[in-house]
Design a protein around this nucleic acid. Structure first.
Lengths: 137, 137
DNA sequence: ATATCTGCAAATGCTTTGCAGGGCA
DNA sequence: TGCCCTGCAAAGCATTTGCAGATAT
């Protein structure tokens, strides 16, 4: 079962209610940008400061316990770190989904035509999610 | 031969010396962020304004004649639009290279496990360029 | 001729910083 | 208790906007 306090401790971050809430919101929603996190935490902590969100998100990113996902034509979102995966971005509704596909073929292609040593491969697909395909019919 | 005036006209942008310079710098350097463009144009136009750079880059991006490339842990860079390609980012020196590999296999993988309709696939590889591999030996 | 562009200055927005009080270990 | 965290306010950057004069077509 998912336990945000344990997670925070593992990464040497003191357990505070605000941090727990950040982690749990991300766990529930998958991907959120700074402002979505702020709006969401405001409900639980009416006097929480945006600065607190920034400080904590930055701290968690530094501990490599959150990842920043940069998205074409939109604000970055954050997600809990997990095994390598790619992202599907719906241009119509903005929804972001994870997708687990094998991208290692690409690394092989790079290796055959270049001397570049690949450490990390990020893939972002833009297009239309299945909900938006239906509703546009 | 490369002709920036023709290019600007094709995209319904008035040909000004500043715009020509932006296009030519990008043509020569491949990828530049806003500040690099500004510093570079300052040499030719000592009184050019950052606002002019922003306005023009934004206009060119809207005309889909420049692309913004979002890079992990660095500022976005801009490049002249060209056929679809991927990017190699050297984590050591920051250099950005284009690489032309076929990414359509990934779209097939997505299609088999998801209903998402892919329109565009962006791939960014991070790692070490060949120069930096040599110099670290 | 005129619509658009440039450069300047101001405004806006986003993110970070410093600090005093409060909370977790 | 002691160090770290929070919230507030201010500072710092990045980007956009409005405007008057200049420029491209």
């Amino acid at each position: 079962m998912f336990n945000s306090s344990v997670l925070l401790k593992e990464y040497d971050l003191k357990v505070t209610p605000q941090r727990v809430a950040i982690v749990e919101e991300l766990y529930r929603n998958g991907h959120m940008n700074i402002d979505e996190l702020y709006q969401s935490l405001l409900k639980k902590f009416p006097s929480i400061s945006l600065a607190t969100i920034y400080k904590n998100v930055n701290a968690m990113v530094e501990k490599i316990f959150l990842n920043e996902v940069k998205i074409p034509e939109a604000k970055s979102v954050y997600e809990l770190a997990k095994e390598e995966h790619s992202h599907l971005i719906c241009s119509s509704c903005g929804k972001i989904e994870d997708i687990y596909i094998d991208t290692s073929v690409l690394n092989d292609s790079v290796a055959t035509i270049s001397d570049f040593k690949v450490k990390d491969t990020k893939v972002v697909f833009s297009g239309t999610c299945s909900d938006c395909q239906k509703s546009s019919k």
